[in-house]
Amino acid sequence: MQSVHIASAYDEELKFLSKRIAAMGGHAERMVEQAVAALVNVDHGLAQKVIQDDLVLDEGQREIDDKAIIIIARRQPMATDLREIVGAIRISADIERVGDLGKNVAKRVASVDGRQPNSLFRGIEALANLALTQLKEVLDVYASRSVERIGLVRDRDDQIDAMYTSLFRELLTYMMEDPRNITPCTHLLFCAKNIERIGDHATNIAETIYYIVTGDQMPADRPKGDKTDKVVLPGPVPAK
């Protein structure tokens, strides 16, 4: 990991940052997991808990920002250390956004009654599993610093996009079948979008870690598999 500094307090400060990031990451993983569980099982109590848990992440981000600024001011860090600190600021911002997205999914539980087809919830669960696997893997890479695994993480974003596109289509179909489905399906659409965004934040974190460890930016050819911008279903024929 980091090399040892003469001032051991400096090492302690850097360690504090990474430890705090990991704690925030664990918290965000748990929130997303519970938000999706609340959505699938229509569990309003769990949804409320997730909404309240978001405060912890907001506070974590503020704390990391403060600490990082103080370290920069006091220690005038260079090279790896500077990247480590700037990276921590960026990663904590991404994790905080992940928490917000989880919270937004939890908020929508009240608007989606459980009467939607089972396959929709299974689809959202599968999408969430993909996104959470990705988040877990990047945070694991943050712990182990084995950047050679990052390519794998970024490729997985493809699967998430493909899954999201498929769910998007299915939701549109249900909405066209029966206008009464429009309200819950729109909420589910936002839930799916939120979860897809979590995957994007995980990819961002992966890129930041790559930068921290190697000092280089990752090549920019990030795969883009989200094709919902092109999904058009023929509308029902209006009655004459």
């Binding site: 360690k15 990451g25 918290h27 748990r30 945070l139 712990a143 182990s144």
Partner: peptide, 19 residues
């Protein structure tokens, strides 16, 4: 998987209860 001596435990086991 992915454990190594010298790695920080609190970075690997991030769940709130483990922390």
């Amino acid at each position: 998987g992915g454990l190594a001596p010298g790695m920080s435990l609190s970075l690997k086991f991030r769940a709130p209860e483990m922390q």
